[in-house]
């Protein structure tokens, strides 16, 4: 049964998209902006993990922590320096700035680490288990498990904690949130921190699956995850999760049953169809227009 192994591999790829899409969707939900530099945070995370593992010979968990720490700080720093001054600016200006930040990170990486790709060491056991006739690698299982744990933790955090409640309040009405005493700038920083930390986790999973690290490696997964977030309904956390998983499954099935070359075109084609049928995405709410 090839079908089962395609499905599980699709879920694995989709889990990576979902983790990245969560960052996109949270930042959109709270800061109301599309952070197109989000994919490049993944690239930085992959480099940090790469150097931690090779140059500093750190154990794998510490390398992951290093990537998370650097990406979190970088995300907060980018928001403070590049986006915060544009809080009142038109959204097109913010979008262009985000694209600028993306190029800045890619070119920065090229200057620092050259454009040739580095081979990410395989640290996660390469073994696999067999489910019936299908065999599934440990890495795929780890990726799926990580995504589920991330999703559960994030949902609990957003729905059960005081900071989570403040984040939801900010996503609805920043003015009213300030009247409650919520420090909106702080909440936005926390959102960028969480999104970038998740990008770091995704970077390690991605680099372990496709073990080459190069300055533009974040672009395609970034665009796919953005697609996943829109697919599920941008701003919706369960939407990003489901959108990511579905996108991964569609991509793997398209590759397996239709055409490797056309798989990306098929993925984006499905997105367009979904948005034509339901413009706010699968779980998106209708957009409130303030009068």
């Amino acid at each position: 049964m090839q079908f089962l192994s395609y499905l599980i591999n699709g879920l694995g790829l989709g889990s990576v998209y979902a983790i990245i899409a969560l960052g996109y969707t949270m930042v959109y939900g709270i800061a109301k902006m599309l952070n197109f530099a989000h994919g490049d945070i993944i690239m930085i995370g992959a480099y940090i993990a790469f150097f931690a593992l090779t140059k500093f010979a750190l154990p794998f968990p510490l390398a992951v922590l290093a990537a998370i720490a650097v990406c979190t700080m970088l995300g907060v720093l980018i928001e403070r320096l590049a986006y915060k001054p544009l809080r009142q600016a038109p959204s097109l200006a913010v979008l262009i700035t985000a694209i600028g930040v993306s190029y800045f990170l890619q070119n920065g990486a090229q200057i620092l680490w050259s454009s040739s790709s580095k081979v990410f060491p395989s640290v996660i056991s390469t073994g696999s288990i067999s489910l019936g006739s299908a065999s599934v690698s440990y890495l795929t299982l780890l990726t799926i498990a990580t995504c589920i744990v991330v999703m559960i933790c994030l949902t609990l955090f957003i729905n059960r904690t005081k900071t989570g409640s403040a984040m939801r309040a900010c996503s609805e009405d920043k003015g009213a949130s300030m009247l409650m005493g919520i420090n909106v700038n702080m909440i936005i920083s926390i959102t960028f921190a969480i999104g970038s930390g998740l990008a770091a986790i995704a970077s390690v999973l991605l680099a372990s699956t496709y073990p080459s690290v190069y300055p533009t490696m974040g672009s395609m997964p970034g665009i796919k995850a953005f697609t996943a977030a829109v697919f599920g309904g941008i701003g919706s956390i369960p939407g990003a999760f489901i959108g990511g998983l579905l996108l991964g499954i569609i991509e793997i099935f398209a590759k397996a049953y239709i055409s490797t070359q056309l798989s990306d075109a098929i993925v984006f084609g499905v997105l367009i169809v979904i948005l034509l049928i339901k413009p706010t995405g699968l779980l998106g709410k209708k957009i409130n227009v303030k009068v």
Binding site: K162, R168, G175, A176, L179, M180, I182
Partner: peptide, 19 residues
């Protein structure tokens, strides 16, 4: 009013006491 429409009545009240 500007209540937080997507949160419960109780959560809204707790947000009022945020500080």
């Amino acid at each position: 009013r500007r209540v937080f429409a997507e949160q419960t009545v109780e959560e809204n009240l707790i947000l009022g006491a945020y500080l």
